[in-house]
Design a protein around this nucleic acid. Structure first.
Length: 783
DNA sequence: CGATACGTCCTTTTT
DNA sequence: GGACGTATCG
């Protein structure tokens, strides 16, 4: 077929036209491939999802398989949801019966059905990274090992590695018998496994490992899936680890040897090596699946020529690749703007100023801009800059919603009610809210449980024999009775009613209500959000038991939660989270040796190829405009460290960069001079009272950003800003706007709600705190 | 028993 | 700069 200018556009009424007519030659080859294994190498922005969705739609439309005979595996829920949605637009069939989901979600599904075959109860719970860490700490303590030598985080990653290589504790111990510390680490691993089993809990890695084990050990279960899934599709194949690879293989390869497996990936975007992803899975696909067809997608529909040249220039320095070169029909576009700054504050300030410029001069929506960084820790300085400039933003990652204390607490109640063997949850909530069950009491129960090798909840039934004070005994009995009552309620109430009951019966709600601090209020809000998420889940899904809800929420990542319906604000995220996304304007930050590429002291071996791929991913997120920043100095662990420009910058062809004119440098110096003045005047700001580690995104909600407001008061700054960004004629207000109130003075809009006459705003005033106002009545003017 | 005060460690990246 | 754990006090 002949390429047309619009070939990358979506076919709006695809239902009626030839499904594949909108694809280019290569995409089409991949989408209509019939039987046998096929590998699609899809460079960034080459229409990978498009091929996947059209292929699935085509299979169904041509009658090659029924919806329920298709298995499509992704890495994120976001990718899975997007795929479902887009397939839904292409076909009339219901997609509900299709198995489209993440590796983890698919495995949970498989396990819920038959996990009893490998000795677990079907009501198993899923432990997240925090739970894992807690459990490992318990193990270390119980074994009387030194907590400094045996770091829970380090051991967690060792265990994860071992699991992903399918090494059991015994093997690890045997292999490291000569090394005292590693041998002990192996013993911790062993105890950890034992405790998981007693708790009837699985960690993230287990989900895949145990699913594979279940299939390997139960021929009939395996065969039923093999027969069912006529077509297996895997997205982001370059990120599969060995267990995932084996799972895919065992599910897709029939006993006859034939395999209708379709994998899409890009070795240049393999950035999860640290999580066990094996780039060789994609490099060796042809060997693993004989007679595999290979299709390479190199035509990019996302970025300008200059951005692609930069990306190609960088990635060609890697050896571990099959080699490809992205190209486009698009014009050259803007040159890349490379920005050098003196420190991370100036970096944040420059970015903020440039974002404002893009927004005001080029009419770019804030939601079409993103700031990418290597580590989450970098977000703090960037947030400060954005708050000062009053640019609305949202952060992806960092402190996750489901990682917040109150959410984890309520989840723990739910998990314990579902599975009374879950000791981690038991310990978490036994005395939250306070019920006079102190450390000593808990320790006594713990010891008793450990001696009889039963879960703590079960051990609590023996409370009378433990020689506790009458008061403590009573408290424990009350606790047990309360959980038992809730177990009954679970079976007679709807999910949302039940969770509400848990919230109230446990006294958790009462506890939150007595906390009148800003933090406490934010807890209540989070809780309400959680309750409405449960309600939403209940209404949306037919399978909406507590068990389903827990599986669902345990596997939710933060990236998945970002709904695109949010207001117009810029996005801050790590490059890892940004994979698969695209933005008109992208700022890639912190291009400094040691930071990016990241180099750690005491490193085993640095994988600079993976770092380079990461940079490649970052660059290829940009559609129109790319900014890259680096700083000569950066605060690390509270200390100033001087930095050097990253080697990666030399790999971008120099003609891709904008010349730094003397004028622009002068302008920059001017700005940084002003900024330093302002920063030094705002000491109160840097000493702000953000108590828990909820970062700025919360500080923002809590309106603690007094600095932002006094900043806007600064006349120097204001006059400068006005020159740079003419005031908008429209009286439309947006979050982040600064307003002048007749009585209360200057404030910043934190949140808008409602429409037209009834529109309300939450405004943070400099001296008057937070106010809720009705916009149609309030004497307010935009500043 | 619980609240507060310091010391220690820390940071990749995420399902 | 901050989270988390242990020490110390009320």
């Amino acid at each position: 077929m002949i390429s047309s200018v619009n070939e990358h556009r979506y076919n709006a009424n695809g239902g009626n036209m030839d499904l594949l007519s909108g694809l280019n030659d290569k995409q089409r080859q991949a989408a209509e491939h019939d039987k046998g294994p096929i590998l699609v190498i899809a460079g960034a922005g080459t229409g990978k999802t498009r091929v996947l969705t059209h292929r699935i739609a085509n299979i169904i439309k041509t009658g090659k398989a029924k919806p329920w005979e298709i298995l499509a595996i992704t890495f994120t829920n976001k990718a899975a949801n997007e795929m479902k949605e887009r397939i839904g637009q292409l076909i009339d069939f219901s997609i509900d019966k299709m198995w489209i989901g993440t590796f983890h979600a698919i495995c949970v599904r498989i396990l819920r059905r038959d996990i009893d075959r490998i000795g677990y109860d079907k009501n198993f719970v899923i432990y997240d990274t925090d739970d894992q860490k807690t459990l490992i700490k318990d193990c270390i303590k119980e074994m009387n090992l030194d907590t400094k030598t045996y770091n829970a985080n380090v051991i967690r990653s060792i265990i994860s590695n071992e699991k992903n290589n399918r090494n059991m504790p015994d093997k690890f111990i045997a292999e490291n018998f000569g090394n005292f510390n590693l041998r002990n680490t192996g013993e911790v691993y062993s105890l950890y496994e034992k405790k998981l089993k007693i708790a009837n809990a699985l960690d993230f890695d287990d989900l895949i490992v145990k699913a594979l084990k279940l299939l390997e050990m139960n021929e009939d279960v395996l065969e039923s899936y093999r027969e069912r899934f006529k077509y297996v599709l895997v997205d982001e194949y370059q990120d599969t680890n060995s267990v995932q690879y084996n799972l895919v293989k065992i599910l897709s390869k029939k006993t006859t040897g034939e395999s209708n497996i379709f994998v899409v990936g890009d070795e240049d975007q393999s950035i999860y090596g640290w999580r066990g992803a094996d780039i060789n899975n994609i490099l060796d696909f042809e060997k693993d699946f004989e007679g595999a067809k290979i299709v390479k997608l190199e035509k990019n529909y996302r970025s300008t020529n200059i951005i692609l040249n930069a990306a190609n220039g960088v990635i060609k320095n890697n050896c571990q690749r099959k080699g490809k070169n992205l190209y486009t029909d698009f014009e050259d576009g803007n040159l890349i703007n490379l920005i050098e700054t003196d420190n991370e504050k100036e970096e944040a300030f420059m970015i903020s100023a440039l974002m404002r410029k893009e927004h005001n001069k080029n009419s770019i929506n804030y939601s079409d801009m993103a700031i990418l960084y290597r580590t989450n820790a970098q977000s703090r300085a960037l947030e400060e800059g954005l708050i000062r400039e009053g640019i609305p933003y949202k952060i992806v990652g960092g402190l996750k919603f489901y990682g917040r204390k109150e959410i984890k607490d309520i989840m723990s109640y739910l998990m314990l009610i579902q599975n009374q063997k879950d000791d981690i949850s038991y310990n978490r909530i036994i005395n939250v809210p306070r019920r006079k069950i102190g450390k000593k009491t808990v320790d006594t129960i713990y010891e008793h449980a450990r001696r009889s090798e039963v879960p703590m909840f079960e051990a609590s039934y023996d409370v009378l024999e433990l020689g506790l004070t009458p008061a403590a005994t009573k408290s424990v009995q009350d606790f047990v009775a309360m959980i038992e009552m809730l177990m009954i309620k679970k079976d007679v109430m709807s999910l949302s009613e039940f969770i509400q009951a848990v919230y109230e019966d446990t006294g958790y709600r009462k506890m939150l209500l007595t906390d009148t601090t800003v933090e406490g209020r934010s807890r209540i809000e989070n809780m309400e959000e959680f309750l409405s998420a449960a309600k939403d889940f209940e209404e949306r899904y037919e399978e909406n038991s507590l068990e389903d809800f827990l599986s669902h929420t345990s596997l939710l990542a933060d990236v998945d939660k970002t709904d695109d319906t949010e207001k117009d604000c810029v996005t801050l995220l790590t490059i890892h989270s940004a994979k698969g996304l695209e933005y008109d304007t992208v700022f890639v930050t912190g291009l400094e040796e040691g930071m990016f590429p990241m180099i750690r002291k005491d490193d085993e071996e640095e994988d600079s190829e993976e770092e380079r791929r990461l940079f490649y991913v970052a660059v290829t997120r940009a559609k129109r405009m790319l900014y890259i920043t680096y700083s000569n100095e950066r605060m690390v662990f509270g200390h100033h460290e001087s930095r050097h420009k990253s080697r990666f910058l030399d790999e971008i062809p120099s003609e891709c960069f904008e010349e730094s004119t003397p004028q622009s440098i002068a302008e920059k110096k001017m700005k940084s001079f002003e900024m330093n003045n302002l920063f030094s005047e705002n000491k109160s700001y840097s000493n702000r009272e953000v108590k828990s580690g909820h970062s700025f995104i919360e500080a923002k909600n809590k309106n603690l950003f007094k600095g932002a407001i006094s900043f806007s008061d600064n006349t120097n700054y204001d006059s400068e800003k006005r020159v740079d960004s003419p005031k908008l004629k429209s009286d439309k207000l947006a979050a982040g706007d600064k307003v002048m109130h007749k009585a209360w003075g200057i404030g910043t809009i934190v949140q808008l709600s409602g429409e037209g006459e009834g529109q309300k705003a939450v405004i943070a005033f400099e001296n008057k705190g937070i106010k809720n106002v009705m916009l149609s009545y309030a004497p307010i003017e935009k500043v």
